[in-house]
Design a protein around this nucleic acid. Structure first.
Lengths: 333, 333
DNA sequence: CCGCTTCAGTGAACCGCTTCAGTAGCGCCG
DNA sequence: CGGCGCTACTGAAGCGGTTCACTGAAGCGG
């Protein structure tokens, strides 16, 4: 282990300038002190190689400069991009993200949320697997919580970036219906519990309304496993004419399955994704998918959480509307 | 802003059990105290809803439980996966990753490295853009540094997971040569400075040895920009018969370019990638690529840094050997 | 029964910064 | 000219743990 050299402290800077530690603390933050003093302090700090100690600062001030980011499943490429995007965006605002992955398990999600709170994050961005958990209410008394995706039930958050999933499902299913598809399979990620996932509800309701014969099948996030499920689904003569995947990652697995089975997309089966991962445009054929504007989501979420942390308490709700990016993976049956 | 409820402190637990705060501190960590006392303390802690305060602990003990993760460019999907993997793996060992992105800019990399050190991370995992920077030596006096990819020059790290890039390049180029390709373009990510990037050197040396006519072209990481560069490269009759991309992300851009230009892969142009992102197997045609076994890298890097932090000082070097995953994107010209 | 080690636990000094109450000095106004 | 308010700064008390030096009691061999 390397020997840790002693760093200069605020007291040494105080000594060097003949000021009190308090004055130095203020001066370094540019408050409560004259321009001239600030300059002197800065010079001395540079001289001594002084660097602020975020941990000490956090303990004294109660703010750590960290935001917890609780993801549903980082197996999913879109969620990876979302996490990376949020992390970058927070860094640009001088904060760090603590990224954790719930592995699609609502129980683990709750335990991780508690862990992040105990870590004293200043705020929490969560992609709730179980928006109705009472824990959210409890958490948001202690720390600002912003949800992304679904809204937490009963206003249990200080902010929310809501995806209008119903609209997204409608866009996709109407598109497939308009092309003439009637027998449509829906592949949605595994969820360990929360059987009444809103997405599924929307799918069923919409399918009913559009008079489609939709079968909802649960698929794992991991590519290999999802490919197996998709292969099973598409094997045999009674296969659906179209597959709507509730995430682009799963659509990739369907592509893999069609290759295994020697099926043509969109000739034998139309595929529609959900997320619009940049990569989806590069597949052959380019994937038709529901686009959520990831940059906008990143921006809204970070903005919301930072605003609440900084004490601009306007509780706000941002609803994102999806758009359908029609490419070449869907066609008439 | 939510009102922050006061949490129980170690002193309150001490009061409740009639012990000293020091004893409670020891008991909670299971040292220097009798089994019985530990049980009593644990009970009282549960009773009072006491939760350890990581920040206070960090200040007093000098260890934060955080590891900085300094990535070359998170634009690259493989690096995203690497970052996510390391983050998950650290979490499994009760540590958090602080992920930052150098945007392929060596200057920014150094400044971020400093920032992470000032944040008092316990360790640093870095994918060095500039392995020869003197800063690494300075840093590694203060904090354990583990490099991933290239080794830091002059033993400036406490551990290293080295990719044998020369071998990777050889695998790819030999494969293309054996198929009969002679005019090969190499697309490598932009680097703001460090012109003598080892990868390029290897490419040129290997090309010489194999008597290939290789042209090295720099491409941006972002998909859209890289696609433009690739399009320019492949336009016109004098185009190369094969493209070797120094990351799968860039190969995706080449795929996009071939679609724009109406070229067939591998008929008109063979494409070979580097990284083996899982998605690459799903493209049409599946991408031939150099496989680095991302899980192994994640595991080695995390293991190294955690070992050094925990004071198992064996300095270690892990060299990863690539393998070539031959798929359908390469064929005779 | 004595001296020596070991074990469980104590008290107090930190770790390095923030913050709050308070003060000295100064300009300004009636 | 006394009082008022303002700015710039000080002193000290934390924030909530850890750790070090120390103590009293128990254990043990001779």
């Amino acid at each position: 282990m390397p020997e840790r050299r002693k760093r200069a402290t605020i007291r040494e800077v105080a000594q060097a300038t003949g000021l009190s530690p308090a004055a130095v603390s203020y001066a370094l933050r540019g408050i409560q002190t004259s321009e001239e003093t600030q300059e002197r302090v800065r010079a001395a700090a540079r001289e001594l190689g002084y660097e602020a100690h975020p941990i000490a600062r956090a303990l004294a001030s109660g703010r750590t400069g960290m935001v917890g980011l609780l993801c549903g499943s980082l197996e999913d490429y879109w969620q990876q991009s979302l996490a990376v995007g949020i992390s970058r965006s927070l860094l640009a605002r001088d904060r760090y993200a603590l990224i954790v992955d719930a592995f699609n398990d609502p129980a683990r999600e709750l335990s991780l949320a508690r862990q992040l709170r105990d870590q004293r994050v200043d705020g929490l961005i969560v992609q709730p697997l179980d928006p109705s958990a009472p824990l959210w209410a409890e958490l948001s008394e202690t720390v600002p919580v912003v949800s992304v995706g679904d809204a937490l039930h009963g206003g249990r958050s200080q902010g929310e970036v809501v995806f209008d999933n119903r609209r997204g499902v409608t866009l996709a299913l109407e598109h497939l219906r308009d092309l003439g598809h009637r027998r449509i399979a829906v592949l949605t990620p595994t969820l360990a519990s929360t059987p009444d996932r809103p997405a599924d509800v929307h799918v069923n309701a919409e399918a009913d309304r559009l008079r489609l014969d939709a079968e909802v099948v649960v698929a794992p996030q991991a590519l290999a496993e999802a490919t197996e499920v998709a292969t099973g689904l598409l094997r045999g003569p009674g296969r659906p004419t179209a597959v709507f995947c509730f995430s682009d990652s799963i659509a990739y697995a369907v592509y893999a399955a069609t290759r295994v089975l020697g099926l043509d997309v969109p000739g034998d089966v139309a595929v529609c994704g959900y997320d619009a991962h940049p990569m989806s445009a590069l597949l052959t054929p380019p994937l038709t998918t529901v686009d959520w504007d990831i940059d906008g989501i990143v921006h809204s979420a970070v903005r919301l959480v930072v605003d609440v942390i900084d004490g601009k308490p306007r509780k706000r709700r941002v609803v994102r509307e999806p758009s359908l990016r029609v490419r070449e993976s869907t066609a008439r049956p």
